[in-house]
Design a protein around this nucleic acid. Sequence first.
DNA 1: TATTGTTATACTCTATAACTATA
DNA 2: TATAGTTATAGAGTATAACAATA
Lengths: 166, 166
Amino acid sequence: MATRQNVKLASAVQEAAGQPLDQSLLLNLVGYNCRRAYLTIIPLFEERMKKFNLRAVDFTVLTLLHANPNITQKRLSKAVNVSPPNLAILLDRLEERGLVMRQRNPLDKRSQALVLTAEGTKLCLKAEKTVTELELEATSMLSDAERAQLVSLLQKIFIREEEAEG
Amino acid sequence: MATRQNVKLASAVQEAAGQPLDQSLLLNLVGYNCRRAYLTIIPLFEERMKKFNLRAVDFTVLTLLHANPNITQKRLSKAVNVSPPNLAILLDRLEERGLVMRQRNPLDKRSQALVLTAEGTKLCLKAEKTVTELELEATSMLSDAERAQLVSLLQKIFIREEEAEG
DNA sequence: TATTGTTATACTCTATAACTATA
DNA sequence: TATAGTTATAGAGTATAACAATA
C-alpha cells in the first residue's frame, strides 16, 4: 500500500540508487588507501603464485630465509608477524615439501637454525622473479619515480617501529 | 659433540644472529609495503575504536551509510568487499545495537534500504572524528604534502578497478 | 626460573551451498 | 527464471594456554 511513508522511502531509495557512491571520508584515510591498494595487488599475486603453491606468508618466509640463512624461528616469527605456534605448522608444511630445513643449534639446543634446501632455493628464486614482475604489472600506472616515492613514503610510516627489533 | 658439521653450523648461526635482518627484496615490493604500513596503523585504530566497539569493517559500513543513506545491501556488499551472507550478520549486530535500520524498499520488496538511526549517526560522527585524528597521529612523520601525495599514489593503483561498479 | 619451540584448542574471518521472498 | 537477502556450515587464519626440552 502506498502510504505517505512508503512514497517518501521509495523516492529516497531511487535517489540513492542514482547517486555514485560517496566514500570521500574513507578515501582521505591513509590506512584505508593502503588496504585498498594491497587488496588490488594480492589477487594477482595469488594467481601467479598458485603454480608454486605459495601463499604470501610462505613467500615472505622463503625470501627471508634466502637472504638470512640460519636465523632462528623466534626472529623469523617477529619478522613475518606470525606467532610461534602458527609459524611452527607453517614450517612443518615447508619442511614436508622439502623446501626448508630445521637444524638444532649446537650452541643452544633450544633454538633451531632455519635454511632453505637446494630445492627451496630454486623455488624461491623462481618465485622472487615472478613476484617482482607481477608487482610491476600491478603498479604499471605508476612511473618508476612514482613507485619509488610511494615505497619511500610507506616505509616512513613503519620503518621506525622495526628498528627496535632489527 | 663437536663434529666438524656442528662447528660449521655453530659459526653460521652466530654469524646470522649478529647480522641485521636483510629484507631488501620485500622492501622493494609495493604490496608488501602497503601491508606493512597498514599493519602499523590498524593497531592504533583498534585501540581507539574499542570504546565505540567498532572493528574496521563496522566503521567502514557506518561511514558509508552516513554518506550514502538508503543504499541497498548489494551495493554496500560490493563497496566494503564483504559477501552478502557475512554482511547480513554484520548488519544484524549493528541493528541489534540500534545503530542501523533495514527498510524494505516499497518499489522492490526484495531489496532493503539501509540507514543509520539517530544513535548510529551520533556514534558515526564521533568515530569519524576519532579516526581522522588517529590517522594523523599514525602518519605524523609525513608532512601534509607527503600524506596527500601518498594517498594520491595509492589511489592510482586501485581507483580504475572500482569505476566499473560505481 | 626463563627461553625456544611444540601441541592442542578455541575463536574469528571468510567462503559456499541451499533456502525464502519477491520480481 | 533471476535477484536480494538469509541461514547454515565448512574452512582458513589467528590467538592462547599448557607442555617438553634446554639453558
